[in-house]
Design a protein around this nucleic acid. Structure first.
Length: 556
RNA sequence: GGUGCUAUCGUCUAGUGGCCUAGGACAACGGCCUCUCACGCCGUAAACCCCGGUUCGAGUCCGGGUAGCACUACCA
């Protein structure tokens, strides 16, 4: 039975419900840094049993890129970053790359472009209370001012020299407005005040209001607010408890604090956490879209065809990355767990995540480590799953070689083959280089391998081997059994071992020289899985045929 | 230029005053395994930005310097 006090404490001193948001702009593909921000928000929300919202910040109509919104939602969906409220992909509606977007929740609309009327009232509130003013300076005038005065800033020192409602009388302002003159609403920042921002990752950050300019909050040209106003109003209205965003926002955090105060919302102002930036792998600076092209790896989760500028950006999904690998890799870029653990499932991340353990400094994007993570997760997938993922690649390769297409339904043969080689690849498409010889006999033989492994006696060895192998029955060809090696480990021993090895011993040939030559006949190079695993899959007829062909073709 | 943030192996990082002759992971290198290439396993090399101060004791706290980054739009 709960005491009355416990009850009292939980009701009247109840912690605010955790509500976080990811609020991207639909200006292009979702950058991998943005994905990490979304992930951290998601982990935080889940851990606290709170809500993860998705809001689209499309207040700059000029930068809108068609398809970007769908892209963002699909990327999050692919990575299993779940959205509880706002915009998201309607489940079970992803057919033929066509996905439907749904809006869920009672705090909508969740696109800022659809919230014009809401912002009007708050702009008016600020104007009425004298916390903001109307400015008529044209972009050209401002530009001229900046050219004229070095380090010009629109603020308490300069606003009285500008064309705004502070310097004009009410009649003039009314007239300009009536004439349809373009204007903006600027926030009136009071000078000389130390603004304190509490950051969950960085602690107390203090900035003097003198360095802040009178930010534009609203522009009449497109009847939309700017980021700063829309962001604060929406976060307030949507009851956001924690703002977890990139470090690039830290300098404007004081402005946001001032805005919350101007509205009288300081008591419900969200907590802030500014995440370290993702840096270029080489040199310094923020990781950018161009770095991906330059260094040859994706910086976007999904491939993106930009309809606005016609560019195509490669994506992790199309490069063969597994979503869980991307998540794990990203989670550890700027955050570490409570121990030395490297591999994390999403559930483990949710359990272990903490803003305390987010680093303060930027993290260089290490693509090599990403590959390693993918390798790890690839091994965890079943052969059947990998086969399923590999089939499109396989079909494409076979078509390119004018070979009969893969039909499937071959009794799990592909899965068996993949099981043989998966531990040597990092990505699904790489499987092709490991399995190609199962689908097509070698047409040429790797020169390096020949030089090292194909000796003068090899043709004679192979000729003799052919005779030895021919004695093995079709049934015995595929036989194998379990045995124990010198170290007590269980190993698979093939019947063919018992046929070929005694022959080699009797003739006093080297095992290495015979087997490697044999391998070259079958594979075309000195690589690949265990030789008897290969002959098992190839079958007797194909094996003998390949050896014959090799004897004829090599050295001729 | 101004303001802010940051600073441990090549990279991601552990480290919250003594457990640090600085730990883990990726990458590199070497070895083992082995018919090959890989995987795997074992091992090696590799770092506290600099200068002061506080303290019995500093990678850890403080100050200064330096460097890097971010921001400084009618972009977000």
């Amino acid at each position: 039975m709960q005491s009355f006090l416990a009850k009292y404490m939980t009701t009247s001193h109840m912690e605010r419900r955790v509500r976080v948001r990811f609020a991207p702009s639909p200006t292009g593909a979702l950058h991998i840094g943005g994905v990490r921000t979304a992930l951290y928000n998601y982990l935080f929300a889940r851990q606290h049993g709170g809500d993860m919202l998705l809001r689209i910040e499309d207040t700059d109509s000029t930068r809108f890129v068609p398809g970007a919104e769908e892209y963002i939602l699909e990327a999050l969906d692919w990575l299993s970053i779940g959205i509880d409220e706002g915009l998201r992909i309607k489940k079970s509606e992803i057919i033929n790359h066509k996905s439907e977007i749904e809006s869920i929740g009672s705090h909508g609309p969740y696109r800022q472009s659809e919230r014009r009327e809401i912002y009007h009232q708050y702009v008016k509130q600020l104007l009425d209370s004298g916390r903001a003013y109307i400015a008529f300076d044209t972009p050209e005038e401002l530009e001229a001012k900046r050219a004229e005065i070095p380090n010009f800033q629109y603020d308490a020192r300069t606003r009285l020299q500008m064309r705004n409602s502070l310097t004009m009388n009410a009649e003039e302002v009314r007239e300009l407005l009536a004439n349809g003159e373009k204007y903006v609403v600027r926030f009136k920042v009071e000078p000389n005040e130390d603004v304190h921002v509490h950051d969950l990752i960085r602690g107390e950050v203090v900035i003097n209001s003198n360095i802040l300019d009178d930010k534009v909050l609203y522009k009449s040209a497109d009847d939309l607010p700017t980021y700063h106003l829309a962001n604060i109003v929406d976060d307030h209205l949507m009851e956001i408890s924690h703002v977890i965003r990139g470090e690039e926002w830290l300098p404007s955090a004081p402005l946001h604090v001032l805005l919350y105060r101007a509205f009288g919302w300081q008591d419900t102002m969200p907590e802030f956490a500014h995440l370290p930036l993702l840096l270029k792998p080489d040199g310094n600076g923020k990781l950018s879209k161009r770095d991906g092209d330059r260094l040859g790896f994706p910086v976007f989760p999904l491939e993106f065809h930009n309809q606005k500028d016609g560019t195509v950006s490669s994506g992790y999904r199309e490069s063969g990355y597994l979503p869980e690998a991307v998540i794990n890799f990203l989670a550890l870029l700027g955050w570490h767990g409570s121990g030395d653990q490297e591999m994390y499932t999403m559930d483990e991340l949710i359990k272990d995540f903490s803003l305390d353990r987010v680093s303060k400094s930027g993290a260089k994007f290490d693509y090599e480590k990403g590959k390693w993570f993918n390798h790890q997760y690839l091994q965890l997938r079943s052969n059947e799953e990998l086969a399923e993922m590999f089939i499109p690649v396989l079909k494409e390769k076979l078509a390119a070689m004018n070979l009969p297409s893969f039909q499937g339904g071959e009794g799990g043969r592909l899965a068996t083959i993949i099981g043989l080689v998966k531990d040597r690849v990092n990505f699904v498409p790489e499987l092709w280089e490991q399995v190609n010889f199962f689908f097509a006999a070698p047409t040429e033989y790797d020169e390096k391998s020949l030089k090292k492994r194909w000796k003068e006696d090899s043709p004679r060895h192979m000729q003799e081997l052919l005779a030895v192998l021919d004695t093995v029955s079709e049934v015995d060809w595929h036989k194998f059994y379990e045995t124990t090696d010198d170290n007590g480990n269980t190993v698979t021993r093939w019947h063919l071992d018992d046929v070929v090895m005694p022959w080699i011993a009797e003739k006093e040939y080297g095992v290495g020289i015979v087997m490697n030559a044999f391998r070259i006949c079958l594979v075309g190079a000195a690589r690949g899985p265990h030789i008897w695993a290969i002959t098992d899959i190839l079958g007797k007829a194909e094996t003998l045929k390949r050896v014959k062909t090799a004897i004829e073709r090599i050295n001729s």
